[in-house]
Design a binder for these strands. Sequence first.
DNA 1: TTTTGAATTGGGAACGGTTGCATAAAAAAC
DNA 2: GTTTTTTATGCAACCGTTCCCAATTCAAAA
Lengths: 340, 340
Amino acid sequence: MIKRAVTIKDLAKKLGVSKSTISRALRDHPNVKEATRVAVQKLAKELNYQPDRLALGLVGHKTYSLGLVVPRIDFPYFSHAVSGAQEIASRAGYQIIICQSNESLETEKAVINTLLANRVDGLMISISIETEEYDHITDLQERGIPFVLFDRVIDCIKAPKVVMDNVDAAFRLVSHLIEQGYRRIAHIAGPRGLLVSEQRIKGYEQALRKYGLEYNPAWVIHSGFRVESGEQTTKQLLELNNRPDAIMAVSDSAAMGAVLAIEDAGLRVPDDIAVAGFNNENFTRFVKPGLTTVSLPMYELGQQAVKMLLRQIEHPDGFKVPHPLTLKSHLIERGSTTRR
Amino acid sequence: MIKRAVTIKDLAKKLGVSKSTISRALRDHPNVKEATRVAVQKLAKELNYQPDRLALGLVGHKTYSLGLVVPRIDFPYFSHAVSGAQEIASRAGYQIIICQSNESLETEKAVINTLLANRVDGLMISISIETEEYDHITDLQERGIPFVLFDRVIDCIKAPKVVMDNVDAAFRLVSHLIEQGYRRIAHIAGPRGLLVSEQRIKGYEQALRKYGLEYNPAWVIHSGFRVESGEQTTKQLLELNNRPDAIMAVSDSAAMGAVLAIEDAGLRVPDDIAVAGFNNENFTRFVKPGLTTVSLPMYELGQQAVKMLLRQIEHPDGFKVPHPLTLKSHLIERGSTTRR
DNA sequence: TTTTGAATTGGGAACGGTTGCATAAAAAAC
DNA sequence: GTTTTTTATGCAACCGTTCCCAATTCAAAA
């Protein structure tokens, strides 16, 4: 059925030499006669010979492929990282096998196993929300498998990591709100247990402390990244006797949910309540008022993760776990937090 | 360095039997003693044995991996398709290797070659904008390699395809505009040469014809999918003496660009000019007025593409190229096209 | 006991490459 | 014209599997 791809054997038969000679001629080994080499390479080109990467991997113990695990690729947040990773990888002659954990620990473990069975040269992992025990990750360390954690990382294990400056980003965002005159600042936080959530809460606290404002636990509510989460949580906040006058949401979508809930309650953004989010999603510049947000360089994060992984793969001897690489985010001030 | 993964040989040595026996025991071949089978499977589980997929692929001529080529994965449009494809594939025991052509024909050819060198069992391809000659695709056919074209397909070659009902979607969208009382309808079309662009223009024409409106070539301008494209093209349209009173853009982003340009010119949507787009991107429901759009089931499109490919791979005998599968889109009417 | 057949198991080729080592051929040195 | 060296090639093993075929075991039948 399938016209079998041309192999080294076919070339050998056609030229009447052994497959070793072909192999050597193709890789420019010094011990082949000029004439032979030229003939082989010409024929190879003619027949469109491509070495079989399976065979190559089997014998060479290297597949030039990297495994990438993200919760979902259809979150723009991650798809940018994936895209950045791909760029660097393919430029370095590696390809990437992308898997989704679907935010499930079970699936995360499964896809990591599949990737290893495919003999990837290394792994890049952004853990799922469910991932609260890390045996499958520490396993990798014990087995000496090169890997990098990125964005959604695990705080308590020492491993190569590339992350966002979440603490700092939240700190700057809250500082901005305070400087705009807002004092009763609430936070729609991310899911409980996720490091990102904790870090943004930490930055939020630090900013309050710096400006001498008190931390009100009732104003920090763990929720989710989605519009609905933001909408619902905001409704709760609006019912407090001591209503906040600003909301920092863990994502732009949640922030958008907050805006919808606020307007639904007959209040106005930013006059009654300011709103800000994270990610600089495309809609933030289209809505009115424009949504203040933090731009996170996810594309670059993907790129850096691959670079860190390749360093590990290509110089395994003497590789030392580097300090986590923290990428700087960028505050984008828009109308939703600007007192008129 | 890397603690070598446990192989069938290791199991054989440990149990004092031959590797053939191990292999058979693991795949529940009838010709193994119950006791042996149990012992082997127990040990395999203990040592966390995973068959090496490279070796499997090499001998079995089947890798259970599919190649997927899209212009970009960080376009939400495609990332949903990719996600849908992944779901079905992994449910069927296949994995997907995703590559981006970056809208370059050169790269498209290159990644297809890489995927073949990796011995994928089949390919799913959404062609790049640049792809105007199809030798690399017809090659696949000649070599008997299973593949499916999806979304961005090639009209003139007979191959398995999964597509959107672009003609019909545009037809319904324009009909809707006409029914809302708009008569001078312009179209910010997609890049020239792309089938999607042609199809949407066709649907646009059909709707005009049905309602007895004349087709004005000056109102159909080839442009791009991005906000800037829409913005710039709209500026051109606004300068015409015979200004349109409605704009159908090829994408929501371009539509958003149109809205920005219109408002920038001191005009109002939808009173002066109506605007509609395609894709049902998240911001369309957040902006004011809400943007009328067409929801395209890209997730399902990815799913169907895999299903069609797997049918081909798993029953190669007697496989006949099916009619292109056309998925139904769904019109979402919002404020941007509703005369008040 | 033998014979016989079925149930198990082992050996080895194959998949498509790479590579060390032996060998043949050609060139250089004597 | 030998011997030695260099250069070019082939052979065979290996990577981790599967699978065909031959060999062994074992119990039941003769």
